[in-house]
Structures are given as C-alpha cells and as structure tokens.
Write a protein that binds this DNA or RNA. Sequence first.
DNA 1: ACGAAAGTGATACGGTGTACGACATGCGAG
DNA 2: CTCGCATGTCGTACACCGTATCACTTTCGT
Lengths: 207, 207
Amino acid sequence: MATAVALADAEGLDAVSIRRVAAELGARAMTLYSYIERKEDLLALMLDEISAEVLVAEPLPADWREALLLFARRERELVRRHPWRVDLVHQRVAVGPNGLRHVEQKLAAFDGLEIDRLTAWRFLAVFNDYMTGFVIREAVERAAPREQGIDDAERAAVAEPYIRELVDGGELARLAPMIEQGVPGADDNFERGLGWVLDGIERHLHR
Amino acid sequence: MATAVALADAEGLDAVSIRRVAAELGARAMTLYSYIERKEDLLALMLDEISAEVLVAEPLPADWREALLLFARRERELVRRHPWRVDLVHQRVAVGPNGLRHVEQKLAAFDGLEIDRLTAWRFLAVFNDYMTGFVIREAVERAAPREQGIDDAERAAVAEPYIRELVDGGELARLAPMIEQGVPGADDNFERGLGWVLDGIERHLHR
DNA sequence: ACGAAAGTGATACGGTGTACGACATGCGAG
DNA sequence: CTCGCATGTCGTACACCGTATCACTTTCGT
C-alpha cells in the first residue's frame, strides 16, 4: 500500500499498475495476488490508507464551524498531497476503518448541538458534497494547464476558434468578459465559499 | 459521438474502447483516428454532447432560486441518464460549445440581481461544486449495491468483520446506530440540501 | 482526365489485468 | 525428525487496450 501510494503521488495513478508496484517491491506481478484479490482492492486500500492522514487529534474544537473548517482544510491539503484521490472517490464507497473513523469524527463536530442524528447526517452530507465538488474542481484546474503546457485565460479565448466564434457571435454575453479578462482565482475563494455553505446550514440549526 | 454515448449508457464507460466503437459503426479501429486525434478527444466530445441535454429553453425563471433549482434538477437527471459522466468530470475542464452555453445560462440566472460579475461567478462556483459532489455521491451509492449484489445497511455491518470490531469496540459511538439501523436515504434529501446551500448564498445576496 | 486529398484498414508494439499451474519454502503434527 | 500441507513466489499465456506506421482505395476539385 505504501509503495502504491508513493508511486501514485510521484507519477500519478496511471503509474500504479500491478506489474509496476510489484517491480517497485522487487517482486513480480503475480506475487501481489497473494495479498489482494483484485487490483480494485489495492485501490480501495490506498484510499483508506490516506484517509488516516485527515484524522484529527482529539479533542475537536468546541465550535462546530471551527471543527468543520478544520476538516475542510485537512481534506483540501490531503488532495494536494495525493491528487489521485479525486480519480478514485467517484467510483467506490469509502468504508475502510480509517474512512469510518473519519466519518465518526465529523459526526462528533455536531455533538454540542441539539439536533437529532438524521439532521446531523444531512448536514454532514451537504458539507461533504460541497467539499467533494470543490476539491475536484481545484484539482482539475490545477492539472489542466500542466497538461496543455500553456498559461490560462488568454489561451482559452484565442486557441480554440470555435470559442472565438461563440464569443464574437454574442452568444456568450455574460461569459465573454470573463474569458477575455480571466477571473482572479484567488485562494480565499475556498474559505469564502465554504463559509456560505456553513451559513446555509447554520440557518437551520436552531429551531 | 452518438454511438459512443449510446455504448457508455448501455454498458458503462469501460465498454467505450476505440475498437468497440469502431465495430459498432461497422469499421475498424484506425478509422476513427481520421476524425479524432486521441481517445481523450472522443471522451471530451461525448461530455460536450450530453451537455446539450441540460440546456434550458429561454426564458429562464425570473426568480434566481427557481432558475438554479431548474438547472440542478436537469443536471441530476442528466447523470441518471448518463452515469458515466461522473467518471469524466474529474479529469478535464469542460469547455466545449455546449458546456460554455450552459455556463452562460447559469450566469443569466443572476441577471436581475444587483451583484457584480465576480460575485455571481463565486456564487455559481459554490452551486456547481455542491452539485458535483451530490451527483457523484448519488451515482456511487446507486452503483455500489449493484456491484456487490447485496442490499445495504445490514450487509455493511455484518459482512466485513473489521466493521463489527470497530462498532463493538465502541470506537464509532455516533456512527454505529446509523450502521445498525441504516439511514433513510430519502429522495427529498436532494432538494433539502440544495435549499440549504441556496440559503447560504441568499444571505450574502443583498448587501 | 488527372493529381491531390480524404478516408479506410492491416499489422505491429508495448502496455494492461489476471487465470492457471509449477515450484520453493516454512511450519505443525505424528 | 520427518512428512504433509499451507503459504508464498512467479513464468507463461490470454484477451484486451491505445495508437504509430504505412499501404491502399475512393472521392473531389481543377
């Protein structure tokens, strides 16, 4: 697992093939199949392995917002360290031991509040879903320029002629200025957006 | 593109291989390379192709919440029709013509409001991120039982001994009851969660 | 009518996950 | 101490993948 994780960190998830991982361990491909049944098992184990990194030392911050903010920051850092995580989350439920411990910790964030289990679960779902989406978008945006080797907004408008066509045709009146001038993809978008989501939750907290 | 989309709908994204798509068209593999440069191009085209399905007939609902709700419902339906979408969104920026038109429509939802472009963009990002996360989780949860051929909560608690161990060890005090009794994965979780997110946005709308 | 362009495809290369079966090694029971 | 079996290692093979190369046919504009 550690080998596979290191490999994915260094060269991306595509580098994690059975043969390659085995080679990294000084063994041959089939050897791995004494310990896993299918490659999918290895991937699931990798996911749970890194889930441990996002566990927080107890006690949690007393304020629920602070606690969730803490989780959010750690999750974001996790994806920065292991970008391949976003290539996996969308295809399996994460129910390894560390994943479960992590959910438990998140539930604990709502401890002091007078809400029932189901409500806490729903709040958590909203929080999780938002984080999933944000983290994926950030990973995609970070990976995109590297793939195409070019900077950003300028290229988007110029390189693809069909975009020029749409923009000049006036079909993208609202979007066009953002393509031309770009958007300041500031880093504080993260805390700001998350803050809005937490605001939405907070409004339904006391009742 | 249509063939590839139909194939992915019917048999999943893995079935979309160059050879298979070509065969479906009564041709050989290399023929496709007259029209695309790499397989990735085909996947990008597929994504943009289905993006057309989520475009909305103008005029949009005047109320911004109604408009976003409309988009959200259509996006959710889209993923129901084409579950393989979640296997693709996390690895490329969607900048095809239909994708751009779709973003333009979403921006139009904020038209009547007195907010600047950047703010609208940020609101949209939060909305989009939440939708991404929700839709992925829903797709994963829908796919999970099918893969493992078993129903749900009962299995989760019983089948994997390490889960039993964690639960019995008292380490998952808050999570355990939900594993034992399951959670009512009601369909209205969608509109409810989305409502909360929109509430969070609304709070910062007038200022 | 002819030359160029566009389209089709056979073959091949290096990769993938994994089924199968042959071996070596270590350990517990007689 | 020895034997039998479980455990671990891995060579080989199969069916599949994306795609580079290059030969061939068809179509079309001049």
